[in-house]
Amino acid sequence: MSISRDDVLRWMELFAAAVAEHRAELVALDTAIGDGDHGTNMDRGMRKALERLGASEQADAGAALKTVAMALISSVGGAAGPLYGTLFLQMGSALAGNPEIELADYAQAWRKGLEGVQARGKAQPGDKTMVDALIPGVEALERASDLSDGLRAAAQAAETGMKATIPLVARKGRASYLGERSRDHQDPGATSTYYLFEAAAAALAG
C-alpha cells in the first residue's frame, strides 16, 4: 500500500476541515496562554491552501505539500505560519517526484519536517510547543511496519504528546511570558499538530 497525490490532497482537505471545526477550541486554548489567534490563523491559512491546491494541477504529492507550505507562509503570519510552512515545505521537498510513497518515505518526510520546525523555532522537547506532539507522532511512524497501523499509532502518540503538554511550563513563544502560570493548559500548537496526524490517519490509513 502506498500514498498517492490524491491521498495527500484528501489529507489536506481533512486537516482544513478539522482546523475549521476546532477553530473556536484552538482560539480558546491560545487565549489562555498566548494571544488567541491560532485557530483563526490556521483556518485562514488552510482555506487559502485549499484554494491554491484547487487552482492548478499539482504534479505530485510533494508539489501539493509545497503549495500548502507557500500558502501558509504567505497568509498565516504569527509563529504558526513559518512553523507549519516549514513543516510542509520540508515534507514536500522530501516527497517531490515520488508518485508512490511508501511508509518509509512518508516517515522520512515527517522527520525532515520535524527537523525544519526545530531549526526554525529552536524548540526542544518539553518546551510546551507543537514539537511535543510532533516528535512522538514521527517516532511512531518510524517504528511502524505497516502504513495503516503506523498512521493510527502516530495519531495516538501525537494525542498523548499533546495531552502531556498540559502540566508543562512554556519556554517558547508568548506562553513563556506566563512562566508558572502556563501550567495546566494544553498547548494550542501541539493540539493543531495532533489534528494533522489525525487527518493523516483518516485520509491515508486503509
Binding site: D35, G36, D37, T40, N41, R44, I73, S74, S75, V76, G77, G78, A79, G81, P82
Partner: peptide, 11 residues
Amino acid sequence: PGEVFTSPTPD
C-alpha cells in the same frame, strides 16, 4: 501590517 496582533508574512 499583519492581521490584528499577528505578525505579517515574509512575502
